[in-house]
Design a binder for these strands. Sequence first.
DNA 1: GCAGGAAATTTCGGTGACCGAAGGATATGG
DNA 2: CCATATCCTTCGGTCACCGAAATTTCCTGC
Lengths: 157, 157
Amino acid sequence: MADGQRFDDEVLITLLRRLTVESDRFAEMFAEVHGVHRTDMNALAVIMDAAKAGTPLSPTALAAALNLSNSATTSLLDRLERAGHVERIRSARDRRKIELRMRDQARELGIAFFAPLRQELLAAWRDLPDDHRAVIGRFLTTTIDATVTARGRFVEP
Amino acid sequence: MADGQRFDDEVLITLLRRLTVESDRFAEMFAEVHGVHRTDMNALAVIMDAAKAGTPLSPTALAAALNLSNSATTSLLDRLERAGHVERIRSARDRRKIELRMRDQARELGIAFFAPLRQELLAAWRDLPDDHRAVIGRFLTTTIDATVTARGRFVEP
DNA sequence: GCAGGAAATTTCGGTGACCGAAGGATATGG
DNA sequence: CCATATCCTTCGGTCACCGAAATTTCCTGC
């Protein structure tokens, strides 16, 4: 019965909405289980991305990325430092600046976060042939672009 | 150069993550522009879904759906009622109960929320043939299921 | 038909994340 | 060196949220 379904625009939009809602729930549940806030998870993700890119992150840059005030970012970093996820290091060249370094603990938390989801996703996609992956990849890319564009429309319509 | 890209598991996971991040940002920005909280948006979505299903929603059921305490839900409903989005109606049969009714204003807010995004998405998908839509639809469905399963693994592993 | 308990919601007091403004500390230009 | 800018933190206040107690209404056994 399932295979006969027509995937018109409405159905795709509904599926997209369900996907984002479920992803959100997953992240929220994970944060709750591990006793951290959603904001903290997002902050760790930003810091981790910066570490991957080799760019040491500053509190101000983090605040901008999270759309958060500087003062709120200070207490966020207090929390993360107290929990042992992050280290504040005064820059040697400009001693006003602070560089944020992740501790291994946080990296392990990130892996623990994604491992179960990752495993399920890989299993779900195991039999996808390359041409289907190409279709899906282009779909995701254009959909991401559309979302970004739609957000831009609000800021400067 | 884009068409030669290989969409292996890693690439798809990255795209999926970017998609959820961008969707989140879109919702957050919309909430901020309209002076409501994220929680309020989620609450309106739940209430709207219930209205579509024809099931009048109670504050307690809303609290459960939002994973929120009853007292927090009370003040949330105070906000929504004060803003004119929702109406509290005492149930005629059981006068302890409250039924939540959406006002047209909130429905219009929801439409205003989705309209720009919807327009962009439809444009992005305009030329998708049916067989591609089927591939995408199955992908989204299995991915949603995988996410739900992964969340279940945490609760009772 | 009424005492006692259950159910649905609200009120109350307290906690903590967040914001804006003011306050150091360090760097840079004249 | 003094003035100004930059970066971060501290401070006081606001508001969403929580847990527990209070309120209103329903239901059951006697």
